[in-house]
């Protein structure tokens, strides 16, 4: 067991650094005109180890950009401010394989069977004896018996389960999910979210989960981060105090509705949209 990752040992220590810490962090995209478009502005957020944080906000609020920056997928020439992942720059967290990422699309390799896809992280990291084998991981996500199926033989929900299993194979300290179930039907989405909750409880990574759905956010999160649009800022953070594990019935309670309204309220008190400098700048640029 020499290949056992040292990550989980440090993740549970009380003095270990925060999973993710962003302080007055900004991210840009170079635009065609040469001017930079600000995707995130003065974004400040701290995520504890093992914490489940859901980020919601309208399209284009920079939530995906934030995830990509945490995973070191965003060009570091176009950022400002401070961002650490597992106590260091995103790059070193990525290189030490402490990050798991799940995309909106399953991104499976279509020539590999389900189990071969789940095995990819082990091949890349050259781990022969993993703590959790791909077979066990597939059981955990409810895909026992489908090991040798090809992705094209799987339904959309099953493919996302495979992607979930794959993102967890190296037991990341930080698991990033970018609208992972947006393309899945509602019934499957509920089941996948329940599965995610179970797996998170079992493996306990810090989770950053991006979604459009207020209901999904309140159901899953320890804390919900509500973002405003262009440039993306933290509008407010809502603590979700419900006990775990949570069942789907929770969503019919008064408290649940109360928290959903609170989150929605943060969107609605957005009088600054027409006056927003970023928006105005952009519309001016378009009219030229």
């Amino acid at each position: 067991m020499t290949t056992e990752p040292a990550v989980s040992a440090t993740a549970k220590g009380s003095q270990s650094p925060l999973a993710v810490s962003a302080a007055k962090f900004s991210a840009f995209y170079p635009s065609v005109g040469g001017e930079q478009i600000r995707a995130l502005a003065d974004f400040t957020l701290e995520v504890e180890n093992g914490e489940f944080v859901v980020i919601i906000g309208p399209s284009g609020c920079g939530k995906s950009t934030f995830l990509r920056t945490v995973a070191d997928l965003h060009d570091t020439n176009h950022v400002a401010g401070k961002l650490t992942v597992c106590g260091g720059p995103p790059r070193s967290a990525r290189l030490s394989r402490q990050i798991g990422f799940m995309f909106q699309q399953p991104a499976l390799l279509p020539w590999r069977t389900v189990i071969e896809n789940v095995n990819i992280p082990l091949e890349v990291a050259q781990i022969d004896k993993p703590r959790i084998t791909p077979t066990d991981m597939l059981k955990l996500v409810g895909l026992a018996g489908f090991e040798n199926a090809l992705p094209r033989e799987c339904s959309g929900g099953m493919r996302q389960r495979v992607a979930m299993a794959r993102s967890l194979m190296l037991q990341p300290s930080v698991l990033l999910l970018d609208e992972p179930f947006a393309a899945v039907d509602e019934f499957n989405r509920d089941r996948l979210n329940l599965a995610l909750q179970d797996i998170w409880a079992a493996t306990n990574p810090a989770v950053l989960y991006v979604t459009h759905s207020v209901m999904e956010a309140v159901f899953l999160a320890d804390r919900v981060v509500v973002m405003s649009i262009r440039p993306g800022r933290v509008k407010g953070i809502i603590e979700i105090p419900f006990e775990r594990p949570r069942s789907l019935d929770l969503r019919t309670t008064v408290e649940f509705f109360h928290l959903m309204n609170k989150a929605r309220g943060l969107f609605e008190q957005e009088p600054d949209i027409p006056h927003d400098a970023g928006v105005q700048q952009e519309s001016r640029a378009k009219s030229v």
Binding site: A71, D72, L73, R94, L95, S96, R97, I99, G100, F101, F103, Q105, A107, L108, L109, I120, P121, V124, A125, L170
Partner: peptide
């Protein structure tokens, strides 16, 4: 996405 995944996994 598959290439991004390779990057996240720090694949060679």
């Amino acid at each position: 996405d598959a290439l991004d995944l390779m990057r996240v996994l720090a694949a060679t």
